[in-house]
Amino acid sequence: MSLNNLIKNWTSFRSRRPYLDQYKNADYKWAMVIDLDACTGCNACTTACYAENNLPVVGKERYEKGHAMHWLRIERYWGEGESVPVDMVPDRGAQFLPMMCQQCEAAPCEVVCPVGATHHSADGLNTQVYNRCVGSRYCSANCPYKVRYFNWWQYADSAWPNPLELQLNPDVSVRSKGVMEKCTFCVQRLRESMDHAKTDGRLVKDGEVTTACAQACPTSAITFGNLANPQSQVAKKWKNQQIALEKDEQKKDENMRGYRIFEEFRTYPSVVYLERVRDLEA
């Protein structure tokens, strides 16, 4: 039966992804744009993520050991091309970069998982199946962004002392020790709205669903949406920035701010960052 399947679908089994117009006829391809110019580094997105996705707060000691579980982290960089003494704050302050799973189209983590716990879904998400994960951490070793977080401890025992467990999101599982986890683009929200839309016999409308981080961002720096729908905000921004999903090197005009991180590794991320504009004269 599977042999039949193999022979019948040979061409589709042998094709590489992403290819041109891969999502042209698809219903969904979830993607994101983050405007660094609007980001103030306030960490509201991180907090929202912790609340939405049942992330444990690990405490200072474990944070120092590198056991933090921040799926979405705000990275702080001082200066750009200018040398600043370690103990001084530069005049223009820090630069911030919210970093989460880039939902790569050709994700390095997916190839190496021995049990196939992480793979690509039809709507362009890099999924993580907790039940299947055996915790070899190879995905994390191979992730160039290092955005995968491993449950070093049984956090469920200590992170939500009674009655804090009542704040847990019932739509999201609480992970046990020994499994890998990462940003899911709030897949529980996406699933719910896609199911609702399906019941109504339509597609999810732009703005109908968004991730917790995008919802919480006070400056609306994060735009989330369906790239397969050319009318969506995200698709328009991608187009305006002249970024194509299936290209590893973007041919674009000079004043364009959009870029994807580590395109040269051919990971084809689904998150576009808009560079911060700085007035160097001032």
Partner: peptide, 12 residues
Amino acid sequence: GLGVADLNNPQV
């Protein structure tokens, strides 16, 4: 859990 081994996020 593997936390006792002091492995951490980049050092997996």
